[in-house]
Design a protein around this nucleic acid. Structure first.
Length: 777
DNA sequence: CCTCATATACTTTTT
DNA sequence: GTATATGAGG
């Protein structure tokens, strides 16, 4: 079994005193000390979940129940895994040489799969495809099936396949009722795609889990080994697990049932990605006799913030229910303010942050590090970035574009991938003509055809064609050289004669890639060379190229260099698990938050998920929480009016302080308050209170003219969609600004397929359409 | 074979 | 408004 130890030597740990237990509250302590048997820890926001979880790990090790490498701990994100690692280390005092089996579902799966790849028809050096590769491959599959990628985009197919994989459905195992929801070619395309993946010796994200699942199901001996090896299993964010992950866990835990799942149904925000809240709701059925521990004491936020969050979430019907409490005192109320556009909103947030920094308005000086701006969608970030840049406020975007996504880095990685797995056709395709080798699209297409026909890799196809004397002479010569190098590099990765860092540098040199940028006159060329250097240097942290490539494929978060304090800017999703003294929640407008698009897709369930997002947002705040909305904003270069979010209606008056002039809600005049006014205007304001007392938010927002936003009834009719009180029906005549008049063909949620009279058939979002009188004969 | 211009969609969230 | 994709022209 030593092959599972991840290089960690056996280590006998004698039971010692456990001082770390003393700082836990009763519930936490119960969850930590119940080491044997199934435990479900229902941990509300800010209730010390991570503390309980990490203490439990430390306790397992410290009491000699398990060695660090015998504990399987799975998290949802890399960030969480890192956090757990460092905190367990801190608790144990001694530096435990890591926990090899603490990681994300995907990372852990990849690790297991590398050991047993052959059982599912892969070689151990299989490539993990990132989203980009996946899309390119899907596009090829679509084209090979003569599907018009305009009408059936690769993204769409990716979404379907993803959904199916989340539920652990192999091709051919997709239930008919499910398959019927989509284009009837989807099933075959899925099967083709899987076939291609196998040919390419590649796995996508979903495959990592599914392949392991299949191995565990079909090979009892392998399953038994892992069951024996992983003596204790811990799962973080259990509410986020999908069916495939659930099955994966249940198999591994089924023998000893020493499984501890931690989660909060109120923070389930990944339903759209296949997460099944049902998993957490069903835990006691799956593991009879499970001990359920509720962590309800909140250590993070003050009372007003907690009450506001609780009030919002209480509108959800489907929840286990928890009552969070705190003795941190009332604190500040949640502040609510409206603006006239995203720029105003961003300007106001910027000013507030500066005021905080300077300790104005009776506030302590607060560092930008303590402030977060949490948005619903990424496009909202732009206004804030622009503004922060303008006023010189340092910020960091969490989850923004990543190092590994830069073009030159991806190119370089493609070369490394080819060295590790020469059959990686997607990598081959990427670099076959970079730097330019005179191999143009015509040659590439030729190779593709042969590869597909013979079901071989691109590199193999290229080799045969070169041998047969195909291509132009220069292309042939260049390809021969490239193919020779690939063989050579691959051999060298296996020999391991040179350290992988040296080898990588040589690959980039011999391929001519470094030279390509050295020669380039592009403005960014020096920067790109710099990035390549950084890339090679970062290889030092890994044991070998394979390890590095897995990391690149699986680790998508970018911890920014620390340094000067910065405001954090991120989506609500990215904020889960984080906390900040000051939190801004902009863009609370119906349509944006809750997001119309998700409502269109998911109806009432989606509305509840949006509400949970709001709950997550508010509960990130420790002391100051600001909610804001605008009366309109530019979307797609078009001005759109906005109505305060229905979630604003759900905020209890007692916990909210209104900073806006009442006029904003009636859609009337513009309040022109200077930023000085605003930052000092934190006290109660009688005129605004009368506003909320009498008409109420609901009526205020109902009064507002609603234009341009489809108010789709969530009971979801597919035949009628209502916009501004006007209904569209199939067959009706409509008007579009750009395409003119047309006839409604199909209605899919907020999208309408229209046959235009002077243009082609197009799917248009309902809010771009207007009703038109029937055409006169 | 590459660059430029035009058209078109696209804005949910991510391992 | 912006990013991407495709097609025409150099």
């Amino acid at each position: 079994m030593n092959d599972l130890s991840g290089g960690l030597g056996a280590r006998a740990i004698a039971a010692r005193e456990a001082p770390y237990l003393d700082i836990l509250n009763t519930a936490q302590r119960e969850a930590v000390e119940a080491l044997e048997g199934p435990v479900l820890m229902l941990a509300g926001a800010g209730t010390g979940k991570t503390r309980a979880l990490t203490t439990r790990v430390a306790h397992l090790i410290n009491t000699g129940h398990a060695r660090p490498n015998e504990i399987l701990a799975v998290t949802f994100t890399n960030k969480a895994a890192r956090e757990m690692k460092s905190r367990v280390g801190g608790l144990l005092g001694t530096v435990v040489e890591g926990m090899p089996w603490l990681g994300t579902f995907h990372g852990t799966s990849a690790r297991i799969l590398r050991r047993h790849a052959e059982l599912v028809g892969l070689q151990p050096n299989f490539t993990i495809l990132d989203t980009d590769d996946q899309l390119r491959l899907l596009k090829q599959v679509l084209q090979a099936n003569d599907v018009d990628t305009k009408r059936f985009p690769a993204r769409h197919l990716a979404g379907i396949i993803d959904r199916w994989k989340n539920r652990a459905w192999d091709p051919g195992k997709v239930p008919e009722a499910e398959a019927a929801k989509y284009d009837d070619r989807a099933g075959k395309l899925y099967a083709d795609y899987q076939r291609r993946l196998r040919t390419l010796n590649a796995a996508d994200f979903g495959d990592l889990l599914l392949h392991v699942l299949r191995i565990l199901k079909e090979h009892g001996d392998v399953l038994a080994r892992y069951q024996r090896w992983f003596r204790y299993i811990l799962v973080d964010e259990y509410q986020d697990t999908n069916v495939a992950q659930y099955l994966w866990l249940r198999l591994l835990a089924s023998s000893h049932r020493n499984v501890c799942c931690v989660g909060d149904d109120d923070q389930s925000i990944y339903g759209w990605r296949g997460a099944e809240v049902g998993n957490i709701l069903r835990f006691e059925v799956d593991f009879p006799g499970a001990r359920v521990v509720r962590l309800e004491r909140n250590y993070r936020s003050t009372q007003h913030i907690l009450s506001a969050a609780s009030a919002i979430i209480s509108n959800n019907l489907h929840r286990l229910g928890k009552t969070l409490w705190t003795d941190a005192g009332d604190g500040e109320k949640v502040r609510l303010i409206g603006h006239f556009g995203s720029d105003d909103e961003a300007a106001w947030v910027g000013d507030e942050i500066v005021a905080f920094q300077d300790g104005l308005g009776g506030r302590d000086g607060i560092s930008p590090d303590d402030v977060a701006v949490l948005v619903r969608t990424t496009f909202q970030m732009r206004a804030f970035e622009d503004r922060f840049l303008k006023i010189g406020l340092p910020y960091r975007v969490i989850g923004g574009p990543r190092f590994y996504e830069r073009m030159e880095v991806r190119d370089a990685i493609a070369y490394l991938r080819l060295a590790v797995s020469p059959e990686d056709s997607l990598a081959f395709e990427r670099i076959v003509n970079i730097p330019r080798r005179g191999v143009g699209s015509k040659s590439v297409r030729f190779m593709f055809e042969v590869a597909r026909e013979k079901d071989i890799s691109l590199r193999e196809a290229a080799r045969r064609l070169v041998d047969d004397g195909a291509f132009t002479a220069p292309a042939r010569r260049a390809l021969r050289v490239l193919l020779g190098y690939i063989d050579q590099w691959h051999a060298q990765t296996r020999e391991g004669a040179d350290p992988h860092v040296i080898l990588a540098a040589r690959i980039l040199d011999e391929s001519g890639y470094t030279h390509h940028w050295q020669q380039s006159k592009e403005l960014e060329a020096p920067g790109r060379l710099e990035n390549l250097k950084e890339l090679v240097k970062s290889l030092e942290q890994f044991e070998n190229l394979q390890g590095f490539l897995d990391h690149v494929a699986l680790v998508t978060d970018n911890e920014q260099e620390t340094g000067e304090p910065r405001v954090s800017l991120m989506t609500l999703h990215a904020a889960k698990g984080l906390e900040f003294p000051v939190v801004f929640l902009p863009g609370w407008e119906d349509g944006l938050f809750p997001l119309q698009r998700s409502l269109d897709e998911g109806g009432l369930a989606a509305l509840e998920e949006e509400r949970r997002l709001g709950y997550v947002g508010i509960t990130r705040a420790e002391r100051h929480c600001f909610v804001s909305f605008t009366t309109g904003r530019f979307v797609n270069g078009e001005w759109r009016r906005g109505v305060p979010s229905r979630f604003i209606d759900e905020l209890p008056e007692d916990d909210v302080e209104i900073l806006s002039d009442p006029g904003l809600y009636g859609g009337g005049y513009a309040p022109t308050r200077s930023s000085a006014d605003r930052s000092s205007g934190l006290g109660p304001d009688s005129s605004t209170h009368s506003q909320i007392d009498t008409p109420g938010w609901r009526r205020a927002s109902e009064r507002l003219p609603v234009s341009g936003r489809p108010r789709v009834d969530t009971s979801v009719s597919t035949r009628v969609v209502v916009v501004d009180g006007s209904a569209y029906k199939v067959g009706e005549r409509v008007f579009h600004q750009k395409f003119g008049y047309g006839q409604v063909l199909v209605i899919e949620g907020g999208n309408i397929r229209v046959a235009f009279e002077k243009s082609s058939e197009k799917t248009i979002r309902a809010d771009y359409l207007e009703s038109a009188p029937p055409a006169r004969p």
